[in-house]
Computed example of a mutant assay.
Amino acid sequence: MNWFYLAATAWLLINVAGGMVRVLRGPTAADRMLSAQLFGTTGVAVLLLLSEAMAIGAVRDVALVLAMLAAVATIAFTQRAWGGGSASEGEES
């Protein structure tokens, strides 16, 4: 079964290489952010597959942290790109 996990990992890494094309060519910042989200999601999947293939449980914790970081990065991008800044930005002191 380890060969299946490693083959799936290789396939996901090939998909990440395809996503890199979108990062470099993306006409908008949203396209680039979606590609970055692809990297985060695929990174989590790769880490989980490697964790199972090598029977290293600590890699699952790293995958969890990467998933949380990807979610926070997406929220930060959305807030910045679509003007959802803090409420005190428009107020004068």
Rank of each mutant, 00 (worst) to 15 (best):
T78Y: 10
V16T: 05
G84N: 00
A30G: 03
F39I: 09
W11K: 00
D31W: 05
R60Y: 10
A8W: 11
G19D: 06
W11E: 02
E92K: 04
A30I: 13
L49A: 07
A67M: 15
V65R: 02
A29L: 12
A76M: 03
V65D: 02
F4T: 11
V23M: 14
L6D: 08
L24V: 15
S51N: 06
G57W: 04
D31H: 12
A67E: 13
A73V: 02
L13F: 11
G26S: 03
P27F: 00
L66V: 13
A76Y: 07
M68W: 09
L6Y: 13
M33P: 02
L66E: 04
S35T: 15
L12A: 08
L24N: 11
A58E: 15
L34C: 00
V21H: 09
T42L: 09
L13R: 03
G26A: 03
V46F: 03
A67P: 12
D31L: 01
V44W: 02
A70Y: 02
P27Q: 07
V16P: 00
N15E: 13
A7Q: 04
G85T: 05
T74K: 09
A81V: 02
M1T: 10
G84I: 05
L69T: 05
G19H: 06
L47D: 05
A70V: 09
I75N: 04
A71V: 12
S88H: 12
V62A: 10
F4Q: 07
A30V: 15
L12G: 01
L47A: 12
S86P: 13
F39Y: 12
A87R: 12
M1Q: 08
R80A: 11
M68Y: 08
A63I: 09
S51I: 08
W11R: 01
G57F: 01
N15W: 10
L48M: 14
A10Y: 01
V59R: 00
L6I: 14
Q79F: 06
R80F: 10
E52S: 07
T74V: 10
L34S: 00
F77D: 10
A58N: 09
D61R: 00
L38S: 05
T74F: 10
E92S: 02
L69V: 12
A67H: 08
V72Y: 03
A67C: 13
Y5R: 08
R80L: 08
L12M: 12
L47H: 03
G40M: 00
E52A: 07
I14Y: 14
A70K: 03
A63H: 04
S88E: 15
L64F: 06
V72M: 04
G18C: 05
A70L: 04
M68R: 03
R60H: 13
R80Q: 13
G84Y: 02
M20Q: 07
W82N: 00
G90P: 09
M68T: 13
S86C: 03
L64I: 10
F39A: 04
V62E: 05
A7R: 04
G84P: 00
W3F: 11
L69Q: 03
A45E: 09
R32W: 08
G84R: 02
D31F: 06
F77M: 05
R80I: 03
A81E: 15
S35N: 09
L38N: 11
A8V: 14
V62T: 12
A71P: 00
G43V: 10
V16F: 01
L24E: 06
G83D: 10
A36P: 04
T78M: 04
A17G: 14
